[in-house]
Structure formats: structure tokens, C-alpha cells
Amino acid sequence: MMLQLLEIRERIKKFYQRYDAFLLPVVKFIFALIAFQTINKEIGYDARLKAVPIILGLSLLSAFTPSSIMVLIAAAMSVLHVYFISPILSVIIIAILMILYLLFARYTPKHGYVLLAMPVLYILKIPYLMPILLGLVSTPIAMVPTACGVIIYYVFQIIKTAVTMQVNISVEDIIQLYTYVIDTLIGSRQMIMTIVIFSLIIMVTYFIRKIPFNYAFEISILAGAFIGILGFLISYLILDKSDQILSMIIGTVISTALVYIMHFFRLTLDYTGVEYAQFEDDVYYYYVKAVPKATVTAPQVNVKHYKVRRPERAEDEDYDSPETYEDYDDEEDTEDEDNN
């Protein structure tokens, strides 16, 4: 099982090294497509924005521009959808998004994508993925965009119910609608608890990952998931929403598995970022493709060890006497199983 996975990883690594330049836009295109489709499915009030050419065009645009553009497009799309059905609600959304940006999100420009990913993952029922992943790859500062993402999700959830309310043009109705949105948002204890729990997950995952011991990464993923399950269990019991517990546990398990898979490939993908550089001196123009040497971390050393043995065994058989070789082999295998 492990061996097959490692082979797949090697193959992906080769593939990534060869097609690095094309792969990133493709991945971004797929992410943008998923994000825009989710928005359309959730709050797709304006049919014009749901047209396939527009979605494809916008996704294509996001594929070749920085990730902040994708977030901006998604925000504009959501606002336009809401504007189509209720201009007053769209004004509220713009105000809230601007407050979030000006007070918090502008300090973490590298995490802009979290703002978009958080609501999308919520709708896909695996929001637990994000805090664990951020704890793994980022610093506790990622708590800020995560919290903003959670708030954005809840804002749009409230907007979705508000849209169904009877809306006349009279001033009283508008005020009533507005009061409803703000009341629900501020009174949402679940939102506040979620923010606290997600922040905890990020902290726990981050600090355990930083402790230098074997399998720190793997254990930190599990610890993050455990904290998440525990936290949400408590919060659901307090809020009396025990019907959501099952889907939360399943979601966490799926998220944990996804994070583990990403972690498994990240070790490879991160370090194989091939760089293209152009420069010149007095004599030549240089077009350099710089391929980083694969850095192997501690758990990987054991695994590599196991892989290298295989071909050697075939060769060794010619030289060694069978009995001694069998002994040696058994010893090796048990040791390796422990390591894996």
C-alpha cells in the first residue's frame, strides 16, 4: 500500500517537474470553477451570471492572474447576485465585507484566498479542512482570515433567509430587514463558537507541528482534528443541535484524510518548484531552468530505505547464500513495518 502510494508520488513529482509551468494555471482554473459554481448554486439569483461562457471566462481570467483577483471576482459575483434580488441587502454585504477587509484582511494579503475558500468549503461540508491545513503550513496569524471567512459564510447564510422575507420598498420594511440581518449576525452564538474552535485548531496544529519529535506533522493533524471534534461536540451540545454531530464528525474525518493526502504530496510538491530565470552577462544570454534537489525529511528517510532495498534484493541473491539472506531480509521487513 505504502509502496504504491510512494510510486504514485514519484510519478506525480516527475509530472509536476515537467509540466510545472502549465499545471499552476490549470489548478487555479479548477479551483475558480468550483468556487464560482458553488456561489451560483447557493445564491444564484441572477441568471445572467450563471451562463456557462461567463463562468468559464471568469475562471480562465482567475487562472492567469494573482489569487486576489479570484477573490475579488467571487465577491463581486456574490454582491451582484444579491443586488439582483434585493439592492438593500447587497449594500449591507458590501459594508460588512469592506469592514472585514479594512480592519482585518488587509494585513494578511497572502491569505486572501482563505476568505473565499472558507465559505466554499462550508458549503461542501468540509470547513474543518482549512484550519488544520493552515496550522500545518502557516502561522497562527492565519486565524484572522479564517475568522473572516467564517463570518462571510454566516453573513451569506443570513442573507439567504433574509431574501425569502417579504420585501416592499417602504422604509419600515427596509429597516426591519436590516435589523433582522444584524440581529441574527450578532446573536449567532454558533458563529462565534466556530471562530473560537477554528482558532484553537490552528493554534494546536501549529504548536504541535513545531515541537521537534518524530511524526510531529502527522500527530499535529490528528490533534487538530481531535480538538475540532471535541470543540464542535461541546458547542452543539450547548446550542442543542445534536442532529448536526454526525455530519460534523464525518466532515472532520474526510477533512483530516484530505489534509493528510495533501501533506503527503506537499513534501514533494513544495520542494520541486522549478524556477525559470533569465539573465545575461557580457558574452551570453542565459535561460536557466533551476530544479531544486529533493529534500528528504526524517520519516521519508525510512521510507526511501525500504524502496531501495527491493532492487538490491534481486541482485544480492546472486552473491549471498540463501539462508543468511532470508534472515537478513526478515529482520529488515519487521523493522520497516514499524517505521511505516
Binding site: E275, A277, Q278, F279, D281, Y286, V288, A290
Partner: peptide, 12 residues
């Protein structure tokens, strides 16, 4: 070349 590549990658 190695030096210049390092510099160019950093600059980028």
C-alpha cells in the same frame, strides 16, 4: 551561472 541563477530567482 549558479550565482546569477540564485540572484535572478530571488529577484523574481
Amino acid at each position: 551561472i549558479r550565482l546569477m541563477t540564485k540572484l535572478a530567482v530571488y529577484e523574481k
